[in-house]
Structures are given as C-alpha cells and as structure tokens.
Design a protein around this nucleic acid. Structure first.
Length: 848
RNA sequence: GCGGACGUGGCGAAAUCGGUAGACGCAGCAGACUUAAAAUCUGCUUUCCUUCGGGAAGUGUGGGUUCAAGUCCCGCCGUCCGCACCA
C-alpha cells in the first residue's frame, strides 16, 4: 500500500469502475424501497463553479448514503438548456444558440464527471432536445384542452429603438439594455396558464409540506396572497358611458361608514370611458403610465388622484354620496381595480384624504375614550370597537365585518369574497431559444392547436441574429403553414414558452422517458415525489410554485396521481466571493488581480483595483471559482470534503482556499489510518478487552448513529465533526483488532463524502466489492450509552466541580457525592444548602 | 412600509428538552523528529487577574422569568433575505 493517497490516479480509476459496473443506474423494477434525490439542474452557462459543486456534492452524499442504507436511489442530472444567455452569445459571438449551449453542456458534463458524483447519467437530457420539448408541447396541448390555457392581451417591455420585446432582465433603470432608450409598455396578445384556478389548493397543500423550510412556505403563502373580504357595488349617481356602477373589494367591510371617497384605477373601463371626452383625465392617465415600473420608483412615486367630479352612492345610505377619483395607486389587476377609501384606518387613504382635503372619520376605537379623539397623522389599523357607525356601534371590528357581509348578501348589493394576489402565469416569450408554442394562427379559425402527429414543432436551425427581435418572426418558410382546421393559409405561433415551463416537469421525465409519451405514469408514480430536492433559495417562489402547479394540473386532468412533486426541500446557501473592479468599472476575475505592497492591483497593468461586495458567484460579476484546478491539486475528495466542512449547508459560504489544505491533510490522515491497518494480521492476538477498547467501541457506535442522523438532516458540517472526533480517538487508541475494525467502519462512514479515497482504501484493505455497494453500518444501541457520566456540581448555578458517577445513579447518591466534594465543602464553609436540585446524569445544583 | 431570519473566540462553527459555553476544523504559538526543509507528531490557544491552588467576567445590548438562560419573555441596536401602492 502506498504511503500517500494519490487522487490523480484514484479519481479516474474509480470513476471508470463505477461507470463500467453501472453502479449508480437506478433500477425501476428494484424491490428495494425507492429514494429520489434531486438537485436543481443547472443552466449551461459555460463552466461550473464551486457554488454548483457545493450543491451537487450535498445531494451526492445523501444519494450515496441512501444507497448504502438499502434504498434504490434515483439521482439524475440534466440541463436547463433554453434561455436568453444563449441568444446574447449568438449576437455577441456569431455562434448559434444551440451550438453554444451544446458546447457548454459538454464542458460542464466533463467537469461534473471529475467530481465522482453518483449520478445515473443514462437518464441525462437537455430541455432543448426536441425529444424533451416535443413532449412538453403535447402537455401544453393537454392543458389547453382542459381549459387551463388561454390568450389575453398583456403588456410587454418594448424597446422603441431596437423595435423588440425585452425581458425584464434586459430593462436596466427603465431603459433598454442595448439601445439605452426609455422602455415603453406595449400590449400584445399572449398565452397564459390558469394557475389562479389552483390558488386555493396550492395554498392548502403547502400545509402538508412539513419537510420544507418554513421560510419557503411562508414566501409561497405571501405570494399566493389570500385576502378575505367583501365585494360590493357602488352605484354611480348618474350613469356614464352606459354603466351605472362598479364593484369594489375591501378587506375591512367594518369601516364602511368611514368611507370618504371612491377611487378607480387609471386602466379601469370607466376611467377610460370618461377620458374619451375629458382631455384632462386623458392627460392624467398618460402621466400615470409614464412613470417607471421598478419597485423603488413605485415606492417613492407620489400618490396622485384626479377628481372626476362624479359621485357614487354609499350602499347603506342613498342620501350619502362620495367623490369618485381616478388614482395612480389603484391596480387594475388586483381585486376589482377599484376601492373605497377609509382614511381613518388605512395609511395610504389617509395620506390621500389629507392631500385632497377629504373628510376623515374615525369608526374604530381601541378604547371608549379614543372614540372622540381626532385621527392624527397615523391611521389606526389595530383592533377595537365600532364608533360613528350607526347600527354597528359597539361591535368588535370582526363582528362588524361579519354583520356588513351578511347584510350586503341579504340586501343584494354585495357578497363575501376571496381575492388572490397570485396572477395567471404568462408563458409567452418573444424569443427564439425556447420551446415553440404549438399553435397555428388562421385568419378564419383563430389559433388552432398543431395536430399531435405533427409534434414536435422543431425550432428551425437556419436563423440569424444580426437584427434585433425574434428571428422566428422573420423566418420565411418556418412560419408558413396551412391551417389544420380549414386548410387555408396559416402562420405558426412564433412565441416560445417561458423556460420556467421547462423546469416544471423535468423531474418527471427523469423518472421515466418513453419515446412516445412525456412519461410513463406508473414509473413516475413509483419514483415521485422527489424525496429530497436541493437548490438555491432564489427559486423559493417561482420555480417551486410553477412545478407544484404543473403537478397539480396534471393530477386534475387525470394524467398523474401525485399530489406534490417535492416532499423534502432543502435550500442551500450560496458560495460567495469578493468581486473586483478595474478603474474603468470592468469586473475582474479573481485571477486577474493581485496584492502588491498591501494594495489590490490589476495584475496585468498594475493599476489599482477596487474590491467590491462579497456576492454570490456569477458569471456576470466574474467572481466565480473554477473547480478544475482545485481538483487537479487536491483531488475530487479534497474539494468535496472541504465544501462539506465547517459551514452549515443552509448558510452562505465565503470562498477561501485557506481551509482546503486542511481537507487535503485529513485525506492523507485517513489514508494513513487505513495503511496502518492493512497489515492487520500483525495485531492478531493483541489485547481485545480492556477499557481502551471498550471506549473506542462506544465512540464508534455513537459516531455511526450521529453521522447517519446528521446526513439525514443534511447537517454535513456536524457529520464531518463527528468523523474528525472518531479519527482522533482511533489515533489515540492502542493497536488491536478492534481498532482495525473501527478503521474499516470509519471508511464506510466517510464513503458518501470522499468516495474515491474510500474505495481505494477499501480495496487496499482487501475488502470484497465496492464500498459504494457496501451496507451502511448499524449502531449497536447497547453501546450508545455511557456507563459512566460526568456530573456538574454547581453552587448557586455556578460550576464549582465535576464528578464521575455511574449512569443512572440515584438522586440521593449524587447529592451525597456533591456535598462530599472537597471544593464544595470549602465553598459552603460549613453551611447547609437551602435547596438542592439534582438532574440525574447531569448535574447537582446547591442553592446556598 | 409589511413579513422573516440571524447576531457565540483571530476566523468557519458546535451546544437535540432551559442543565459543564466554545466540541470539530482553520489560522497562530511552543516543542519533537530532521544537516535543513517539506511531511508528520505532541502540547497550548475566549478575555482579564493570579501567590499557579485557582479566581472573575463572558454568547450584540438593557431588562425580566428561573435553582439554573446562548437557549424562554419584553425593549433596543445591528446585519441579511423576501414582498412591495395588494385595498
């Protein structure tokens, strides 16, 4: 056995052995219990960085552990391969998006393979394979048939110089990223998925996802945003533009007698109707549209209103009219696009009322004294009883709400309603590099689904990116197609699907990939739900919600009996790194800067460089760290071990190379431990009993239990610490057969984390078979408990002494021992304690 | 503004139920081995005081509950994340 572990040879050797044996192929027909471990699949942006590695290694440790623990494990890998960066690359480098993507995939696959991940590569696919997106088109048609797909006018970002639609990330400070021209909002007819039909059940079943982080559940809950209240009708004093009133929604029906105005959105049909004959209002509406749409701009935007001069009638008093405003802060696509304002109990309404001199009437008071107090600068939104509210006076706010809803329903002017913040999912993208939406537009028949036998609708390869906009639009032949319904001339839909659609069902295709269907139902039902899904928290809302929706929708249309796609979710922390900038503002990669005389300079030119924030590794900030040179130097296991050590996996990990030397040293330590035992016959007949051996056995079994539990909990940093402790204990133990057995077990314990080294040492010890296929050791419950425990002795809660006692020693005995302690006798100085608290096996606290 | 998380040595961190704070690792210091270096091994490493026995303080901060608080409760300070005109 060599005295040093050489990862250069071992890594490649064992990777080849695993591949040749098909070690990590998932067998659909296995009788073992199934476990599906999945990390969010990567976008092939170029090369992987250590942030990716951290993600995949975590899943890999769990997958290898589950295999050893007796499960049939599905642990696949693929590529989220459609998306905008490929088109940008096409424009910048005159390379086809497909070619660019394929070449990145090849590079990244090679990088991943060097890490020795226990992946079933036979199931690999990319979402840009027609074989994948063709089935996606079929599923889209299924949803369409079920009425879950529709078309609607919707606003897009329009660059008036480049004459192109921009994705949100292409809008920088309200301007087009290439042209720099102010972006306009423009209406286009686009495809939508009816996710709002599922709002209720998506919210409901969040409650059952108890292996998800609370944080993510809460974020989804807020995103879906259920609000309960009253929808009621305001009658206009006199009809206008053929309408005599409009609906408003409120969550505070109890404050209805505090109403002082009504307001509608600038996009509300009534506003638009009035504006036709009212140039002043038309100007106001135009002004509302001019402002930017970024969060910061909205936050600071002034609350503005336009008094239409019209009045609406209070629903509970025909004599009482309220002014009708058009207000910039009323959203057309939430609730009914119209509100009633109750300034006393809503801050925004109060600001508005003060600005336009509207009355402010308190209708809820926390205390009886408060009833007469005028409202100041702050609206009161807390609980209380009703005042100034006629028949509601004296009721609590909740009771008053119920009373108003009941009365509205009886009298017929309104009804209880639930309003959702969630909007339908717009899936149209005016882009080339995505799944073509399988429809054909016909002047006579409208949009007609592409017949199933014509799927997949394959993206044409012959496209040019020398003009802005979607090259599919300009394609001379691809767009020309006959209408499948009437046979007349038609035109292919040139919008492609949002890439979030691609990632909404890829985990089903991993479980089963027949040629003639999106998936085989039985196979998907056997593997799903994913037992453990691992990825970045940045996907906490959109991706996870869309994938949940897709699964719920397939269930509703009878395609799949899976309630939720991901049973366990883990959101791992990001790997962060400092960013660097040159004097001209360019981002610099870590290898382009160096420290010189204590200052950071650009290595090539010697100009001073600026250190930016520590941020998530990303290609655009150029702060990524490539794993390849690290693997060259320390082996896959050195890197794997380092990424698992120290930082809790959910926390961000600031990258530094300082610690990896330590990992490398530990690899060699493990190797030496195994090396020392490879001549195990030397110790035959050596002492097999005695306290040292017994202590080592107990340590081993406690470690087996702890490492297993910590891997299950994805607390890899703790599992690493457990293993270090065991290694320390082994090194201190005298040679014996028990020690040799302990080293063997240690190898099993580290096998999921450092698989190459474990295989190499396992083979060197002459063990049969692959350690990857070995059984996870079982902890002997009898050895998990110590027979001796250390008891803390406190006086007034302060530690004064410790003593050793038999486990389970009775309270009286512990108290006696504590009182007999020399130190305690000295501290008590002859006095008797007033009170003695004994916690068996833990401590004795003497209260003096 | 609303919602949430977090704050422990020089650094990454641990402490499962309120019960010996700092396990484990990194960095550092001292020593052994060596002609030397690397590698490896041993010991020390929260702060302050010390007559070297030990003593005092200590988990952002101020209070509180308790025999006992990193852990529970209230207030404050700070950092980070999500949502953001949601009626």
């Amino acid at each position: 056995m060599a005295s040093r572990f050489n990862p250069l040879k071992a890594d490649a050797h064992w990777q080849r052995v695993w591949e040749e044996h098909g070690t990590f192929h998932a067998d659909d027909s296995s009788a073992r219990p199934k476990s599906y471990i999945l990390e969010m699949f990567p976008y092939p942006s170029g090369r992987i960085h250590v942030g990716h590695v951290r993600n995949y290694v975590m899943g890999d440790v769990l997958a290898r552990y589950r295999r050893m623990d007796g499960f049939e494990v599905l642990h696949p890998m693929g590529w989220d391969a459609f998306g905008l960066p490929a088109e940008n690359a096409a424009m910048e480098r005159k390379i086809h998006p497909g070619a660019w993507t394929r070449s990145n995939i090849a590079t990244m696959r090679g990088q991943l393979k060097r890490l020795g991940l226990a992946l079933d590569w036979s199931r690999e696919f990319a979402t840009c394979d027609p074989d994948y997106y063709g089935h996606q088109q079929a599923l889209f048609l299924d949803l369409h048939e079920a009425g879950l797909v529709y078309r609607k006018e919707s606003e897009v970002n329009w660059d008036p110089v480049d004459m192109t639609v921009l994705a949100n990330e292409q809008v920088v400070d309200g301007k087009g990223w290439r042209s720099g021209a102010p972006v306009e909002r423009r209406k286009l007819s686009q495809w939508f998925l009816r996710i709002t039909d599922f709002a209720e059940e998506l919210l409901e079943s969040l409650g059952g996802l108890d292996k998800w982080p609370d944080k993510v559940r809460l974020m989804q809950e807020n995103w879906i945003g259920r609000s309960q209240g009253l929808k009621f009708r305001f009658a206009l004093e006199r009809p206008i533009a053929g309408t005599d009133g409009f609906d408003v929604f409120t969550t505070r029906p109890d404050t209805i007698f505090g109403a002082s105005f009504a307001a509608i959105s600038p996009d509300h049909p009534i506003a638009l109707a009035i504006a036709k004959d009212d140039p002043a209002l038309a100007a106001f509406i135009a002004e509302c549209k001019a402002g930017g749409t970024t969060a910061a701009e909205l936050e600071t935007a002034e609350k503005k209103g336009f008094d239409t001069g019209l009045k609406v009638v209070h629903p509970l008093d025909p004599e009482w009219t309220l002014p009708l405003y058009v207000a910039n802060f009323v959203l057309i696509d939430y609730g009914t696009g119209a509100i009633f304002g109750c300034p006393a109990h809503d801050q925004r309404d109060l600001d508005f009322a003060r600005k336009y001199g509207l009355p402010v009437t308190r209708v809820v008071a926390a205390t009886p004294e408060e009833a007469a107090e005028p409202v100041g600068d702050e609206a009161y939104t807390g609980p209380g009883r009703l005042v100034n509210s006629r028949f509601l006076d004296g009721l609590t706010a909740e009771d008053a709400s119920r009373e108003i809803v009941a009365r509205a329903e009886t009298e017929g002017w309104g009804q209880g309603a639930i309003v959702w913040r969630l909007r339908d999912w717009g899936v149209s993208r005016q882009r080339y590099w995505g799944t073509p939406i399988p429809f054909i537009h016909c002047a006579a028949c409208g949009p007609v689904p592409v017949p199933r036998e014509q799927l997949p609708v394959v993206l044409p390869e012959d496209v040019a990116f020398d003009h802005p906009g979607n090259p599919l639009d300009r394609h001379p032949s691809w767009t020309r197609v006959d209408c499948p319904a009437c046979g007349g001339p038609g035109r292919r839909e040139t919008d492609t699907l949002d890439t979030f659609v691609d990632s909404s069902w890829y985990f089903m295709r991993f479980a089963s990939q027949p040629a003639d269907a999106p998936f085989n139902r039985a196979a998907v039902e056997a593997w799903l739900p994913v037992d453990q899904y691992i990825g970045g928290v940045e996907h906490a809302i959109l991706h996870l919600l869309y994938a949940r929706f897709w699964t719920h929708a397939l269930k509703r249309i009878g395609r799949l009996d899976v309630a939720e796609p991901f049973e366990g979710l883990f959101t791992q922390g990001m790997v962060t790194h400092e960013t660097y900038r040159a004097p001209d503002g360019r981002w610099l990669a870590p290898e382009e800067v160096e420290h010189k005389d204590g200052r950071l300079v650009v290595a090539a030119t010697g100009e001073p460089a600026e250190t930016g924030r520590v941020e998530k590794m990303s290609k655009s900030k150029r702060n990524t760290v490539d794993p390849d040179p690290i693997v060259d130097q320390y082996g896959a296991d050195g890197l794997r071990w380092f990424l698992l050590s120290d930082s809790p996996p959910e926390r961000d990990l600031p990258w530094s190379e300082a610690g990896i030397e330590g990992s490398w040293r530990f690899m060699q330590r493990l190797w030496r431990l195994a090396d020392a035992e490879s001549g195990v016959s030397t110790w035959l007949g050596a002492e097999e009993s005695g306290e040292a051996v017994a202590a080592l056995e107990r340590k081993l079994h406690r470690t087996i239990a702890a490492v297993g539990a910590n891997i299950e909990a994805l607390a890899f940093n703790k599992a690493v610490a457990n293993i270090y402790e065991l290694a320390n204990a082994i090194e201190k133990a005298p040679p014996s057969q028990a020690r040799a057995r302990t080293v063997e077990t240690l190898l099993l314990l580290v096998a999921p984390m450092v698989p190459h080294l474990a295989e190499q040492a396992w083979a060197a010890l002459g063990k049969e078979g692959l350690i990857a296929n070995a059984a996870w050791p079982k902890a002997d419950p009898a050895l998990l408990v110590e027979d001796q425990v250390t008891i803390a002795v406190q006086v007034n809660g302060k530690l004064r002494d410790t003593l050793t006692a038999a486990k389970g020693a009775p309270r009286e005995a512990l108290e006696e021992m504590a009182l007999a302690s020399e130190k305690i006798v000295r501290i008590l100085d002859g006095k008797l304690p007033r009170k003695v608290i004994v916690v068996p096996d833990r401590l004795v606290n003497l209260v003096a």
